[in-house]
């Protein structure tokens, strides 16, 4: 290991310690914004672990996140189980689902995968509503805990750190290297001996795991859970946008996208609540036409130019 490979995690550790002090300094409004941002940091970073190297656009985040929130809701309301038990079960269920989806779609071309994940959250929402209405009775699901916003924030921070640490380890592993090769040329990847389908499925499972975990941990924030609210297709798109805006090619890329986007999103939602969809569309086009590699790509480009100039 050379010194540069430790530089990033060291900086990350300092950033994490600073981030941990947020609930001690911020007021209630800004803490609430921070919780949202931390949620998206965990979601986007784990999304980029899979989609960054493979270039597969996953829109399944909303579905996994919803599974997390819904299972916590139904477990606590319908079966009187503890929050902790459900928060442990939910990610496992999502991981299994991710494995099944991955096995069915990831051996085919990327388009099938995008299409399959596109309607997934909506489909599961319909299915869950139907089951809830016909078999469980349509009572509301309550998630009553003693957690404050600060607790939720800290839990999300821990999850985000785990995602980061995992990403750091994966990037240094054969699996991470395999994914970079797959992203370059899947056919070459197979012929150098990489089990391409398996590598992709494993990474997709980890994004499923973390999305459901985040969904479960943030459920107490809403107190009242409704399938229509937790299985949100919009969430999947927001995660994609933030990760790509920052740059999915680097581990810290999504972080760079989440923070400005959350602030602007907050502003747009308050100032022009009817134009949020339009705004999302414009940001998508901005990414494709102006920032194809996100902020990170721009930063790299500027660095390169500065270096050339100094020579």
């Amino acid at each position: 290991m050379n010194s540069t490979s430790w530089k990033e995690p060291s900086i990350a550790a300092i950033v994490a310690i600073l981030a941990a002090s947020v609930p001690l300094v911020f007021d209630a409004y800004w803490l609430s914004v921070s919780v949202t941002a931390m949620m998206y940091i965990a979601l986007s970073t784990s999304w980029a672990l899979f989609s960054g190297p493979t270039h597969y656009i996953s829109l399944a985040t909303g579905a996994f996140f919803g599974i997390g929130g819904y299972l916590v809701g139904t477990g606590m309301s319908d079966y009187n189980l503890s929050f902790w038990l459900m928060a442990a079960i939910a990610p496992i269920v999502a991981t299994i689902l991710a494995a099944l989806i991955g096995l069915a779609t990831l051996r085919l071309s990327g388009v099938y995968f995008v299409i399959f994940t596109l309607g997934l959250a909506e489909m599961i929402r319909n299915l869950v509503s139907w089951i809830q209405n016909n078999f469980l009775g349509s009572r509301g699901l309550y998630v009553l805990t003693d957690f404050t916003e600060s607790h939720i924030y800290w839990m999300l921070l821990i999850i985000a750190c785990c995602v980061y640490l995992l990403g750091w380890l994966v990037n240094r592993s054969r699996l991470g290297f395999a994914l970079r090769i797959i992203g370059n040329d899947e056919s070459v990847a197979k012929h150098v001996g990489i089990n391409t389908a398996m590598s992709k499925v494993i990474l997709f499972m980890t994004t499923g795991f973390f999305a459901a975990l985040v969904g479960a941990v943030i459920a107490p924030r809403y107190t009242y859970i409704e399938p229509n609210q937790v299985f949100s297709p919009e969430l999947s798109f927001l995660v994609v946008i933030m990760a790509l805006l920052g740059g999915a090619g680097r581990l810290w890329g999504p972080l760079v996208g989440v923070i400005p986007f959350t602030l602007i999103w907050e502003f747009v939602s308050i100032q022009a609540p009817n134009s949020t969809t339009l705004f999302l569309g414009l940001v998508f086009l901005l990414i494709v036409y102006v920032l194809p590699h996100g902020f990170v790509g721009r930063i790299d480009q500027i660095n390169k130019k500065l270096k050339e100039r100094s020579h």
């Binding site: 970079r180 090769i181 370059n184 040329d185 056919s187 070459v188």
Partner: peptide, 12 residues
């Protein structure tokens, strides 16, 4: 194997 049209990994 090598490929008829050479295939490399451009970002590496």
């Amino acid at each position: 194997r090598t490929f008829q049209l050479v295939r490399l990994l451009p970002s590496l």
